[in-house]
């Protein structure tokens, strides 16, 4: 990753000794993500750091950083308690702008789906009949995870296949009943879906907000994985079965599609 090459001053907390040096994983608009360790060398964690913004007034900056980290942590705790697949919060110092979270093994769902699609012939040629089951299962898994999230009263705010991890299942947990060759192919999209990056998450129970969440995912999915677009209905079907009000969210999604993400289009 080229991102790791660029040197930013690390947060103060990461300047103290650790068994493995912290590694910069990614840089977003608002913050950076490091891989490091929590308490003991054998416990990997993700450290999210929101550096101070030089263009903001220091007092305002501190307050915003603190409030955003706190709200992200609260959403994660709420989800975790309810059994929604999200990383646990390990430690945080909102005033210093950092939060340590459970390190989720595996690859982003985006990478998994692309790896799967990569093995298929390019558009134009007639695709051979391929057993789609592993990808279909993944779509169902995403629908179930998003449904579980919405059921707890949280909307993610930035649902994309990059903000979901595909955590490998523990040995023995995998359904290894198919042949070896198929298994190898299916590996790319096999695993449990874990939702990550709740930096834009809000607490809401409204059909409208939930539908917009799905709409954002639908649009992101269509542009990231155009060749798998037709499978999106499977995701929605499984979402529809996850909680009582899910069908009305899906009905609302129709409206949102007609008009776009913004409800009021004035100006």
């Amino acid at each position: 990753m080229a991102a790791a090459e660029t040197q930013f001053p690390p947060p103060k907390v990461l300047t103290y000794p650790a068994a493995t040096p912290p590694m910069l994983i990614t840089q977003g608009a608002e913050g950076r993500l490091y891989k490091t360790t929590h308490l003991v060398p054998t416990r990997p964690c993700a450290l999210k750091y929101r550096p101070p913004k030089p263009y903001r007034h220091p007092i305002l900056d501190a307050r915003l950083t603190k409030a955003r980290l706190a709200s992200e942590a609260k959403v994660l705790e709420r989800c975790w308690r309810e059994g929604v697949p999200v990383p646990a919060v390990y430690a945080m110092d909102p005033a210093a702008g950092w939060m340590m979270m459970e390190w989720i093994e595996g690859i982003p769902v985006r990478a998994g789906i692309n790896a799967w699609l990569g093995e298929r012939p390019e558009d134009g040629t007639e695709a051979p009949v391929v057993d789609d089951t592993p990808l279909v299962d993944l779509m169902k898994g995403i629908g179930t995870a998003v449904g579980a999230l919405h059921r707890t009263g949280v909307v993610h705010g930035d649902l994309t296949t990059s903000n979901m991890m595909l955590r490998p299942r523990e040995a023995g947990q995998a359904n290894g009943d198919v042949g070896d060759e198929k298994n190898a192919k299916g590996k790319a999209v096999e695993g449990d879906v874990v939702l990550i990056d709740f930096g834009l998450a809000t607490q809401s129970m409204s059909d409208e907000d939930r539908a917009v969440d799905l709409y954002v995912l639908e649009r992101a999915f269509a542009s990231t994985h155009p060749r798998a677009e037709r499978l999106f209905t499977i995701l929605l079907d499984s979402y529809g079965k996850t909680f009582k009000k899910a069908p009305s969210v899906l009905a609302k999604l129709e409206d949102v599609r007609m008009r776009g993400r913004k409800r009021s289009m004035l100006g």
């Binding site: 609260k74 705790e77 975790w80 308690r81 390990y90 430690a91």
Partner: peptide
């Protein structure tokens, strides 16, 4: 254990 650690991390929020 995870819930306890998380509750402690979020103390006072």
């Amino acid at each position: 254990e995870t819930l306890a650690v998380m509750g402690m991390a979020l103390r006072g929020l």
